Simulated scan of single mutants.
Amino acid sequence: MFDTDQFVSDCLDAVRADRSHRGVLEVMQRALADPAAVRAAFATPQAGVLAPLFRSDELTVLNVIWKPAMAVPPHNHNMWAVIGVYDGREDNIFWKRLPDGRVTAAGAQSLSAGDVVPLGRDIIHSVHNPVARLSAAIHVYGGDFFADGRSEWDAELLIEHAYDLSVARARFG
């Protein structure tokens, strides 16, 4: 059985023992070994949502519900992240910054229920839910996800601009 409070506590213990993502990755892998238990711990989602389960300067834990066919343009976090999908799919495209500030695709990874992936501090990625239903994941960040200072790239022109949290939240609504 997955317990959200215990998961958050285990993540906090892990990050306090080692500021890198390694301990949180192990916590997430244990939790996502049974994605059905994680899914059962949350109410059945009815809509897209970016729901904080925990937030501090050292750690943010989010329950992320992706709307069908939802896409988020390239963006950075300026902190490490650990992503664990517990329902549906999450397709990530990884980008590399060009000298002119734009980005170009550099790789991709598709995550299904039970998959866990760490993202380094400097990763730029975009996310797409390729299925015709809601998809769900837990995202853990090594800092305050909602703090200023991040960037996003225009989906069409791939030009960098400041990340706008209100625009990001509206995508989920």
Rank of each mutant, 00 (worst) to 15 (best):
V24Q: 07
P74I: 10
V82P: 00
F145L: 11
A108Q: 15
A51S: 11
R22G: 11
S151Q: 12
P99A: 04
D164P: 00
I83F: 08
V49F: 10
A113T: 06
W80V: 06
H139W: 06
F145Q: 05
G173Q: 15
A170V: 04
A36V: 05
R89I: 03
N92V: 05
A31K: 05
F94G: 06
H125D: 12
G143L: 03
L25I: 07
A106V: 06
W95A: 06
V82R: 05
L158D: 04
A155W: 05
L119P: 00
R89V: 10
T44M: 09
I123F: 12
Q46P: 02
P74F: 09
A71W: 08
A147Y: 07
A51M: 15
A108K: 13
D34F: 06
V8Q: 05
P73F: 06
E152H: 01
D87I: 04
F7P: 02
V8A: 09
A37C: 01
R133H: 14
R39W: 07
K67N: 11
F42A: 02
A137W: 08
Q29E: 10
K67P: 00
E26N: 04
V131I: 10
Y163A: 10
A168D: 12
V72L: 12
I159Y: 03
D3W: 05
S56K: 02
A36S: 10
A136Q: 14
M79V: 03
L158H: 11
S110M: 01
R16M: 11
D87G: 09
H21Q: 12
H128L: 15
R133C: 12
G149E: 03
P99L: 05
N129W: 02
Q29D: 07
T44P: 00
P68A: 15
V49Y: 14
F146R: 04
R39D: 13
L134E: 11
L50D: 14
L53E: 13
V167T: 10
G114M: 02
H139M: 05
N129Q: 01
G120E: 13
V167M: 09
I123Y: 14
T4M: 11
V27Y: 00
E26D: 11
A33G: 12
S135V: 00
A132D: 14
R30A: 15
P52L: 15
L119H: 14
H128A: 13
L62N: 08
I159F: 06
A43N: 15
T104G: 09
S126Q: 03
P45S: 12
G173F: 12
A147T: 08
V24C: 09
G84T: 02
I83Q: 11
H77L: 15
S110N: 06
L53R: 08
V8W: 08
I93W: 12
P130F: 00
I138L: 14
A168G: 01
E26P: 00
D100R: 01
I83V: 12
E152A: 10
R89G: 04
A41T: 02
L32K: 00
A37V: 03
N76E: 10
R102Y: 01
R55L: 13
W80E: 09
W95K: 03
W95M: 03
P68C: 05
V49S: 13
A170M: 04
D115M: 04
G88C: 11
L53N: 08
D115P: 02
G114P: 00
A162C: 03
D115G: 00
G120D: 13
M28T: 07
H21S: 14
V38L: 02
D3Y: 03
R55T: 13
V167C: 02
G143F: 03
G143T: 08
D5A: 15
V167K: 13
A168N: 12
N92C: 04
